[in-house]
Design a protein around this nucleic acid. Structure first.
Length: 200
DNA sequence: CGCAGGATGGGCT
DNA sequence: GCCCATCCTGCGG
């Protein structure tokens, strides 16, 4: 299966990338073990003009520096002190756009995912951004990692038809004011792995 | 069922 | 100090 290359990640329209990522395969290879899942839910964060983005108003910190890198690297950060959230950095250098991967449908290495998860999970294994990071072994060490290398990457797959995609508002961004209402969340309809609420 | 609460750490006012 | 782009558990009805 072909890896997505830099040109894909550097497209200017971050919502178009978020939309196109649905149905593609997110893969990690750690200690020779492949774990992979179909991307079923994404959210776009549109850089300095998006109040929900860490990089809103051109904010630069040690943490957000990764978002300013050229498209095609991983942006991983710790949320609520517990969960690592995995984002794909998009667009060109100094344009801090990103796509948050919110849910996967497991495909390869499910046994390994369950081991990493280390509880009675089955249904929740990769539904929700904190869960999927844990299942795929994604942590802060992956921050800034290239998505065209051999640790973590995304594989090409058939485009999901528009009538199977549902568009809605993003989760957990009430603080962003009117930007909280932007239609920047993309899910595959009727997929059991979409986080909370299932299906649509 | 549903919902409140806790875990836990970095970055900002 | 306090706010979070979260998730699981345990409690009450």
């Amino acid at each position: 299966m072909a890896k997505l290359q830099t040109a894909f990640y550097q497209q200017k329209d971050v919502t178009a990338i978020a939309r196109q990522l649905l149905g593609k395969i997110l893969v990690t290879a750690i200690d020779g073990v492949r774990t992979a899942g179909i991307i079923v839910e994404t959210e776009a964060y549109a850089g300095i003009n998006d109040k929900a983005s860490h990089a809103w108003n051109n904010r630069r910190t040690k943490r957000t520096a990764t978002m300013y890198m050229p498209g095609g690297v991983a942006y991983v950060y710790l949320c609520y002190g517990i969960h690592y959230l995995f984002n794909v950095v998009t667009s060109v250098e100094n344009t801090p756009h990103a796509v948050l991967i919110r849910a996967l449908e497991p495909v390869d290495g499910i046994g390994m995912m369950k081991m990493r998860y280390n509880n009675k999970a089955g249904a929740q294994l990769t539904a929700g951004p904190g869960n999927l990071s844990k299942a795929l072994g994604i942590n802060s060490g992956m921050n800034g990692e290239s998505l065209t290398g051999n640790k973590i990457w995304i594989e090409q797959a058939a485009q999901i038809n528009d009538n199977l995609v549902s568009v809605s508002t993003r989760v957990g961004v009430q603080y962003a004011g009117e930007d909280a209402y932007l239609p920047y969340r993309f899910c595959i309809k009727n997929n059991n792995w979409v986080s909370k609420g299932k299906g649509l």
